[in-house]
Write a protein that binds this DNA or RNA. Structure first.
Lengths: 120, 120
DNA sequence: CAGTATCCCTACTGATACTG
DNA sequence: CAGTATCAGTAGGGATACTG
């Protein structure tokens, strides 16, 4: 496999995937939109308070460019903008799920480790 | 869930997972070690030529600290160091697999897109 | 509400040289 | 072989203030 995208060359699906979803907050954003959709910017901000607004908007723009999410602007006052996952974006569900599952596993693992130390 | 790790607090397994495997080259390293294990540093370098040595070693160190991989040093001349996935590290297989699968899907999606443009 | 604009800083990167 | 050391450049990220 060889694919050219955004002036770069990727030799595996993995590398392509990482270039698209590897951004600092992208998995978190996708996780939000898998749980509930569509979401407005302010709603995503409430769900991800640890992300500052500028970064959130930048990562949303990149996801939109890559067609992972769609952005719908309603010409009303006050402004209303809705974000949701595209078809290809929805297919990221297994990625997000497996990450969540592993994270839970790892959390348990850390607790066991802490127990061992506590026992000693 | 609330877990404290490395002086930070995580409220979801997902956030914990991302803090551990979110590094720039970590998924790539884990992918290597899932394919073949153990691997020596020079072998990983050959498999991931796009990563420079200093970054590779840093990310390996972090993965080792988080107990995702193990590092075995053999006291021989010339030096021999082997890296392999730990038990919890091996459990990342579904994460890596789902990322690879999605990446392949996304590559197809891009090609279809290119076709549409070509047709017009 | 949904964004920009500004400033600053850390992380990553690349090249090259050196060591046990 | 498997690293560490140094320098220097760039991209990504963070805090805060401001606007249609």
């Amino acid at each position: 496999m060889t694919i050219h995208y955004k002036e770069k060359t990727f030799f595996t699906g993995k590398d392509l995937a990482l270039s698209v979803i590897g951004g600092r907050w992208k998995i978190a954003i996708i996780w939000c939109l898998l749980q509930q959709s569509p979401l407005r910017l302010s709603e995503i901000q409430r769900k991800l308070p640890e992300v500052n607004q500028r970064m959130l908007i930048r990562q949303l723009r990149e996801l939109e460019e890559d067609k992972i999410i769609t952005r719908s602007v309603y010409p009303v006052v006050p402004p209303k903008v809705e974000y949701q996952l595209s078809e290809i974006g929805l297919l990221l569900e297994p990625v997000v799920t497996s990450i969540c599952d592993w994270g839970d596993n790892f959390a348990e693992f850390l607790e066991e480790d802490a127990d061992k130390i506590a026992v000693n």
